[in-house]
Design a binder for these strands. Sequence first.
RNA 1: GCCCCUGUAGCUCAGUAGGAUAGAGCGCGAGAUUCCUAAUCUCGAGGUCGCAGGUUCGAAUCCUGCCAGGGGCGCCA
Length: 550
Amino acid sequence: MIKKKIRKLVEETVKNFWGEIKKLNFEVEKPKKEIYGNYSTNVALVLKNKVNLSPLEIAEKIVSKLRDNTFVFEKIEIAPPGFINFWISTNYYIDNLKKILELKEEYGKLDLGKGKRVLIEFVSANPTGPLHIGHGRGAAYGDSLARVLEFTGYKVFREYYINDKGTQMNVLGESVYLRAKELSGEKIQFPEDHYKGKYIYDIAKEALKLYPDLLSLEKEQAIEICRNLAIKLILEDIKKDLENFRVFYDNWYSEDDLYKSGKVEKVLQVLREKDLIYEKEGALWFKSTNFGDEKDRVIIRSNGETTYFAGDIAYHYEKFMERGFDVAINIWGADHHGYIGRLKAALQAFEIDSEKLKIILIQMVNLIEGGEKKSMSTREGEFLELKELVNKVGVDATRFIFLSRSPDSPLDFDVDLAKSKSQENPVYYVQYAHARICSVFEKAKENGIDKIFWENIDLKALNEKEEIELLKKLEEFCEVIESASISFAPHKITYYLLEIAKQFHEYYSKHRILTDDSKLTYARLGLCFACKTILKTGLNLLGVSAPEKM
RNA sequence: GCCCCUGUAGCUCAGUAGGAUAGAGCGCGAGAUUCCUAAUCUCGAGGUCGCAGGUUCGAAUCCUGCCAGGGGCGCCA
């Protein structure tokens, strides 16, 4: 990465002149204006308080040294009030192009993680109904983040936590039971707080088919049957939806199993021994206020039922203490934000560094259809299922749109726009660039240019303005990957891909790749191949396909 | 009342461990195809970065207060 390289060179030079300087926080960045070079640094401005010279004098000294490095720098200038502006030599970029051609899909891989083990838990929707479009955003984000972290040297484990225990499951079972009765012609009263979705009827039908004598059974027993069947069918449906959406897990973790294994009881015992549990009003409370939470939290209700929190404490204890993950990332809907304090408190109770748990909140998804904005509210039954959305829009466009926003930003999903296969839809813009390049290589093949050995190609023929600009853009890829990984922000890759596609399209429309000059043709093919490689790698990190034909 | 997120072009959004004259796409207006994919390209118009203070050589970015929108403040998950 050229940015890193400049930083290192500047640091060395500073050290040379003034020795080790504490807290030297300077920037190397890409200026917006071309007249300020390809990169610039404010180091002289930052140094003025540490060294007894004016920024311009400091800059002068540093530059006098750096100018020697002609392989990297073509030109270095100083601009008031003390910026140092660098122009990078084309040789450097050509050299980088060679690297891309050599490493191909491996180019851009980094070792930020150094093999650290990361658990990413995402979606984890309750098995009480099908996935909707909000879950889709979490799925796209979590999966892409997992891909990015893997690409940058982490050992990633993907997990789905199934809340298959507790009151909600009984409500689910009873909902199915009641619908089964209804289907058999009985008059029923369906409670307001039960699951009203249409899918409940489908499960009820299945239940009646599998257990013809269902309704003659004891009510308790029948409900249990309905409950288990409902969980099974809904989970299968969720799994299928996710697989369709190209999201796969290493593990599906059942809350029910967590209890059956005795781990919850074990963890509560540990808390008891630490004197962090007390009884009040018939319930059992955890002293989360000891660790900065707003209030203490119930873990066993007065009716004897455990809360969701109890299982979560055990689950997270296990993530760190027994399974030994270095980092755990939880991806939640923003509506769960009030839950963070208590979970981090629980970790602290076990003397686990709560910084190891990263909780990412994803803002809401609003649906726009026919120009109308609809909020996704489960309560109102006004929600679009993920599978419907994917059927209408397709996996690629859906994922691309989900990954074109920062998770902090609420997302308006415009279904009509997503469906349109026109210039309005950015995903095709990127994919088209890839397909176009593939098509050029097809054409080249027809002209007898087949197996190309890149190491034998002279790339110095690249000197058009658009070519140099592309070379520079390609060089930024590693930085983008690094930034996406460090800040858990796959959308940075999305934006980068749009930029590189744009530059490629510009280039393509202005210059011919296949020319009469074979030396030039090969060099241009090299550039094209690098663009194609980076587009493919980037799209793959988003979980979007890179088609060869469109 | 408290907590979290958001407020940047007509619309949807990037840009926030401070940097120089604030960006993109869409939409709008005008153009480009005998030639490797027009799902493309070129040009143009479009801004008090919610408001007010503060920190400093320098603030969309950091701090404080306010305004507006969304979400959350259960012995639900």
